[in-house]
């Protein structure tokens, strides 16, 4: 009697255990979290380990590399799917979920204008156009360009934090209060270009387990392969160098990876690496009409220095290279 039948008479209670009616275990005891599983056949049940003379034998010790990585990918996919579902219900600070009413837009516009005018006055103050009434020298409110509270200024008069004596030897003062990048900057040397670069794989595939590579029959004990931790070779990027003369000397270094070919590229504003307080360098434009073109507009007042930023594939918003511009004085 393999299936439970309600019309069968149950055996007596003193019947041997193996003759008693048994229900099959429920098909599922946990919620199905893996949605695609609904459309697939259920996984095979893991066999119980057979008991050995000294207790159950250990489960097979084959590497669980493949299983672990595929589980991780599945967890990631499920996590992202749920995240996307949840995100539909929420809007960021800049991108709301639903359309705004005219009233909301008007109120927001008023607030932006109010902020902009407030900032203008705040900038005018330090430049000497506005009196700094009611603010004592050294006040944390004096230094903030937005007229707000400046925590650095608040802490500055009290000096750096020093640990109290009862808690052991005070830490020696750090060599610098502000981070200073190491002065000798390595320049990028483009590697030699190769003829062919394989495209990057979408997903990591762990190396085959040892039993998959072993031949039939009693094979010699093979060394279990370890996963390669070296990144797969993407091939050398396209490295170009331009000397652009814009009334002043400038050096442009452009590094593009293989993924940049045929893409529509954009470059956000380039950050100043060594010019303290310099505004970002904007006006870097790419064109692609078969050949990649780069247009660079440098304002005459842009301070000399090195500016760097990432090059992005506009469609996928993934980084495909970097551009560095050095403006000479």
């Amino acid at each position: 009697m393999s299936q439970w039948n309600p019309h069968d008479r149950p055996p007596p209670h003193d019947a041997p255990v193996q003759d008693r009616l048994r229900r099959d275990p429920p098909a599922r005891t946990q919620p199905i979290r893996d949605v695609p599983l609904i459309f697939r056949s259920p996984p095979e049940r893991r066999p119980e380990p057979m008991p050995g003379p000294n207790g159950p034998i250990p489960p097979n010790g084959h590497p669980s590399l493949e299983a672990g990585v595929s589980t991780a990918y599945r967890v990631y996919d499920e996590y992202m799917r749920r995240g996307r579902d949840a995100a539909r219900g929420f809007g960021g600070s800049w991108n709301e979920a639903g359309p705004l009413s005219y009233g909301d837009m008007a109120r927001r516009a008023m607030r932006y204008w109010s902020d902009a005018i407030g900032m203008m006055f705040d900038f005018a103050g330090p430049m000497g156009f506005m009196p700094q009434h009611g603010r004592a020298p050294g006040s944390p409110y004096t230094h903030s360009p937005y007229g707000g509270y400046d925590p650095r200024a608040a802490y500055a008069p009290q000096g750096r934090y020093e640990p109290p004596p009862p808690y052991g030897k005070p830490e020696p003062p750090a060599p610098y209060g502000r981070y200073e990048p190491p002065p000798p900057r390595e320049r990028y040397e483009p590697p030699p270009q190769r003829a062919h670069a394989p495209p990057p794989r979408e997903r990591y595939e762990p190396p085959p387990p040892p039993w998959a590579t072993r031949g039939p029959g009693p094979a010699a004990p093979a060394q279990a392969p370890r996963p390669s931790l070296e990144a797969p070779e993407l091939g050398a990027g396209i490295a170009l160098r331009f000397d652009v003369h814009l009334g002043r000397a400038a050096e442009v270094r452009l590094h593009l990876g293989p993924g940049a070919a045929g893409k529509h590229l954009v470059a956000p504003a380039l950050a100043a690496l060594d010019a303290q307080g310099a505004p970002p360098l904007e006006g870097v434009r790419f064109s692609n009409d078969g050949a990649i073109g780069l247009t660079l507009q440098v304002p005459p007042e842009q301070p000399a220095g090195t500016y760097s930023g990432v090059v992005i594939d506009e469609a996928s918003r993934t980084p495909v290279g970097r551009v560095t511009v050095t403006l000479k004085a």
């Binding site: 669980s64 672990g68 990585v69 991780a72 990918y73 990591y204 762990p206 996963p227 990144a231």
Partner: peptide, 11 residues
């Protein structure tokens, strides 16, 4: 498993 995940991270 940790080694497999590290390989995936490298990728």
């Amino acid at each position: 498993v940790a080694q497999g995940l590290a390989g995936a991270a490298s990728h």
